[in-house]
Design a protein around this nucleic acid. Structure first.
Length: 205
DNA sequence: ACATCGATCTACT
DNA sequence: GTAGATCGATGTA
């Protein structure tokens, strides 16, 4: 099973099933919903890391919780760039969070990748996270960036052709739950958090 | 300049 | 359940 996953990740990296840029031009909330079940791949010097996305959140223009709500700045500039790129930001003085940029150039929207189910390179992820607890490796936006060795140097990468990408292996999640977003003080009313039902790898219930 | 807060996580009670 | 870590961005003076 592990071996099968490894082959899958390699094929994904070689161009098999990479999600095309058009995908990120759909409504941002739809992109967040449809990213559940897709595969995040990061090719690092230590080896290939991959995991299935089990939790996301959408951040839109005109949404007070969105970093881009006050206009373009040095920090959020990649959100206003081309869709299908990464937006990585630094938060709470010690963590990084990964987003997939959506919508056309000039519009600041994106999807926060909140949790993934580890599939490939689990031993490396455990080293990066200094834990052996599988369920806690990538169960949060800060945790998954640490596990996947993603930091500010990975901001602005093209998720359709770089060492960091998102692929589709044909997996269809049984059920995707829609819920209010977490960890924010404004915009709590919007049901723009999505997660794979009953996954043990989500950040919280 | 200074104060505050954040799309978080961990450790400890 | 609550506090502490730790720093860049943002707001107020």
């Amino acid at each position: 099973m592990e071996c099968e996953d490894l082959i899958l990740a390699h094929r994904a990296f070689d161009g098999y099933g990479i999600i095309p840029r058009d995908f990120y031009l759909q409504n941002t909330v739809e992109v967040a919903r449809k990213l559940i079940g897709k595969i995040l791949v990061h090719k690092t010097a230590a080896g290939i890391l991959a995991g299935r996305i089990v939790e996301t959140e959408a951040y839109l223009q005109g949404d007070p919780a969105c970093h881009a709500s006050l206009g373009i700045t040095k920090r959020n500039a990649t959100m206003f760039g081309d869709p299908g790129h990464s937006y990585v930001y630094f938060v709470y003085g010690m963590y990084y969070c990964l987003n997939a940029v959506t919508s056309s150039c000039g519009v600041g929207e994106g999807v926060l990748i909140r949790a993934v189910e580890p599939l490939v390179g689990i031993d490396i992820m455990m080293q990066n996270r200094a834990t052996h607890k599988l369920k806690e490796l990538c169960s949060g936006p800060g945790k998954l960036c640490m596990a996947f060795a993603i930091d500010s140097s990975h901001n602005g990468l093209d998720l359709t052709e770089s060492d960091l990408l998102i692929a589709n292996d044909g997996f269809i999640p049984e059920s995707v739950i829609e819920a209010p977003r977490v960890g924010i003080s404004q915009g709590k009313d919007k049901p723009w958090r999505f997660y794979q039902k009953e996954s043990p790898f989500i950040s919280r219930k």
